[in-house]
Design a binder for these strands. Structure first.
Length: 654
RNA sequence: GCUGACGUAGCUCAACUGGUAGAGCAGCUCACUUGUAAUGAGCAGGUUGGGGGUUCGAGUCCCUUCGUCAGCUCCA
């Protein structure tokens, strides 16, 4: 279909390397690919013409800059998976007559299709059969054919099919802008583009089935969503499955259990309420101490507030009833005419600490820090491991400052967050600046002018700190813009960890003030910041990031002393005492086991250092050092080992 | 909360179409006294998540409830 009529007989095509080639007008992408090379033609999935991805079969009528897309291009993969969604739909149509198709887009890793099963029940047990059908269909290697249809034609087609979902989609489309794609017996309303033919899709794998609401709205009917992924080569599928297997190995829920860090085992305690075991608590306190020290150096002051507060506090702050649904219900005592709320946030309490004193502009900023435990009633289906819990700890601090100090404070908060990420070797994270939605300024508190200032401050601070932050409009909280650090877990799910948020709302609501140089009362700006975010979530992601091999400074047990026999238990204990005196976390394995067994135990527990001691060591006052995962190292005096370990810890935290 | 899957010893997992709940590891006891990733033997360990039902008989089938997982929705 020639959209653009031109008088040109020939067209000039510019390739990604900048070279130009001349073709007859109407040459297709496939022909261009063939003219470049047989290999490229074989791998070609789609073509990008002046920035728009389209089918290889479509003729090109004008001069254009093009790129032939293959599996190596993100857009090539996207097209491949989109076409795979159609192939899966064809298989489903063959196996489950009457199912209605809605939407089936590609995603980061594969694709899904939302269907109305129309009475069929599809479960993961059926995956093998569906995959087999997909392979069978793919082997027929039929073309994906694009067909422009009129709106009436499209409506007729789906009225015949009785597919109200597609009709709803067509409703929103303009006549003349509607296309069907067909492959084999399957026809789908689709914008495209698609790969040339089904034969490219050789290795399908269905991943999961779940409910999803039509158009993501809880009020709408629930559809069945089937997730899948496909590959052109077996090796790629195997690599993908291997990666998933490895990810499962690193799952923090599994490692948390194996390493004895935390447990959710007791149904009596309640869902989403983690119990920290001694080793996990040690790890967590070590992390907290690291941050406390860092904060002291940066002028933060510690505060401590109770776990509950009067409901009135949260009415004033505006959190209640706005977030009523995700809070534990208020507690009412019979003899007191007031309700109490289990605190969902620390900030209201902190405002009251600020308000305990009269503040001069000279005193600002005031930085109040607390590891504050908060409680939120997350929906049951939302809970998961440590990443989503109902009771968690925020490494919260609230900075009360003058408007002219905002940028410097945001910069310091970013610096602190970066320090934390660096100390824990997080190299892959994303920084996101969330701004207000320019089309819906109604839902935000505070004047436009203030928002402009705040957004500018946060943007400049991010920029000056060298952050390559992406900006997203409409993601800001109602009270101010924010900057978040996001990190992915082993399953590639992205979690928000650290955050810096500017807030003009709470100082207003609590009528917080400071006295300026003209003896006038002024409103301070509040900055919420939490470099870890939630300790629980952070540690969950950290476990997966390290695979349980924590850096020495964080390891719950840093060294385990392994006497080779009972005769050396005393010496082992003596060494342990010397290490403890140097603040090293140490355990002695004085069980009746062989050294080989003790080593195995320590290795599987991922203890960084094993110190084997026997007669030779006792006589010389030494330890035989074995490093986790590295095997036997050397035999050194106890003091040397202490010095080394301390140097390692200092280096990691500097 | 919704849809689906799952729940057997502390952990990891067995138990054909309904027919006496098993194993390895961990634990305990005893022996061994060990030199760099599992010493040997023995013992103990369960109302098969809870409740109800069908059946001569239920880990297995049905209902219900709690929990876990995946996804949806939401997230101060």
């Amino acid at each position: 279909m020639a959209d653009v009529q031109t008088d040109q007989d020939t067209i000039t095509i510019t390739l990604p390397d900048g070279s130009e080639r001349t073709y007859a007008a109407g040459t297709t992408g496939r022909e261009i690919a063939e003219s470049i090379g047989a290999g490229l033609a074989r791998d070609a999935l789609a073509i990008k013409v002046n920035g728009a991805v389209q089918d290889l079969s479509r003729p090109i009528d004008t001069d254009a800059t093009i790129a032939i897309l293959t599996w190596r291009d993100a857009e090539g993969k996207e097209t491949f998976w989109h076409s795979s969604a159609h192939l899966m739909a064809e298989a489903l149509q063959a196996l489950y007559p009457g199912v209605k198709f809605t939407i089936g887009p590609p995603i980061d890793q594969g694709f899904y299709y939302d269907i109305d099963p129309s009475g069929h029940q599809i479960s993961s047990d059926d995956f093998e059969q569906i995959e087999a059908k997909m392979q069978e269909l793919a082997q027929r290697d039929v073309a994906y054919e694009r067909r422009a249809v009129s709106k009436d034609e499209a409506i007729d087609y789906y009225e015949d099919a009785g597919n109200e979902y597609k009709l709803e989609l067509i409703e929103a489309l303009d006549d003349g802008d509607i296309t069907f794609y067909e492959q084999g017996d399957f026809t789908d309303l689709c914008r495209g583009p698609h790969i040339p033919s089904t034969g490219r899709i050789k290795y399908p794998k269905l991943l999961s089935v779940a409910g999803a609401y039509w158009r993501g709205d809880e009020q709408n009917p629930q559809l069945t969503r089937i997730y899948g992924i496909t590959f052109p080569k077996q090796k790629l599928l195997e690599d993908f499955l291997e990666k998933r297997r490895l990810a499962k190995e690193r799952d923090h829920r599994k490692l948390g259990k194996e390493l004895g860090l935390f447990t959710f085992n007791s149904e009596k305690v309640g869902p989403g309420l983690p119990l920290w075991l001694p080793k996990g608590a040690t790890l967590r306190e070590t992390l907290q101490n690291f941050l406390k020290d860092e904060q002291l150096r940066r002028g933060y002051e510690p505060v401590i507030t109770p776990h509950i507060g009067r409901l009135e506090l949260y009415r004033t702050s505006g959190h209640y009833p706005y977030y009523k649904e995700s809070q534990f219900p208020p507690i009412r005592m019979g003899d007191e005419d007031a309700d109490y709320l289990l605190k969902p946030m620390n900030c209201p309490h902190h405002t009251q600490i600020y308000d305990n004193d009269l503040h001069s502009y000279r005193d600002l900023p005031v930085r109040l820090a607390e590891f504050g435990q908060v409680y939120r009633y997350e929906k049951s289906g939302e809970l998961g491991g440590l990443t989503r819990v109902r009771g968690f700890t925020v490494d919260d601090a609230h900075i009360f400052c003058r408007p002219d100090q905002v940028k410097a404070e945001v910069k310091d908060a970013i610096d602190l967050a970066l320090k934390v990420l660096r100390a824990l070797d997080f190299k892959e994270f994303r920084a996101q600046v969330s701004l207000r939605d320019p089309n819906d300024t109604e839902k935000y508190v505070g004047s436009d002018e203030r928002w402009d200032q705040a957004e500018q401050a946060i943007r400049e601070a991010a920029d000056e700190m060298g952050l390559d932050a992406i900006e997203v409009e409409g993601e800001a909280a109602f009270y101010g813009p924010k900057l978040d650090f996001m990190v992915k877990d082993v399953l590639d799910r992205e979690w928000q960890l650290g955050t810096v948020q500017i807030d003009y709302n709470l100082p207003e609501r609590f009528d917080l003030t400071y006295i300026d140089e003209h003896d006038d009362r002024q409103r301070p700006v509040m900055i919420h910041r939490a470099p870890f975010g939630s300790l629980e979530r952070f540690i969950g992601v950290l476990i997966e990031h390290t695979g349980g091999d924590f850096p020495t400074w964080l390891a719950p047990v840093q060294a385990k002393i392994l006497p080779i026999g009972d005769d050396f238990n005393d010496y082992a204990r003596e060494v342990a005492n010397r290490l403890r005196a140097a603040d090293i976390r140490v355990k002695v394995d004085d069980s009746d086991e062989t050294v080989g067994y003790k080593i195995r135990q320590a290795e599987t527990a991922k203890v960084p250092y094993m110190l084997v001691v026997g007669g030779r060591e006792e006589e010389a006052g030494t330890v035989a050092v074995r490093q986790h995962g590295e095997g036997q190292q050397d035999v050194v005096p106890v003091e040397t080992f202490i010095d080394r370990l301390q140097a390692e810890v200092d280096a990691a935290l500097s």
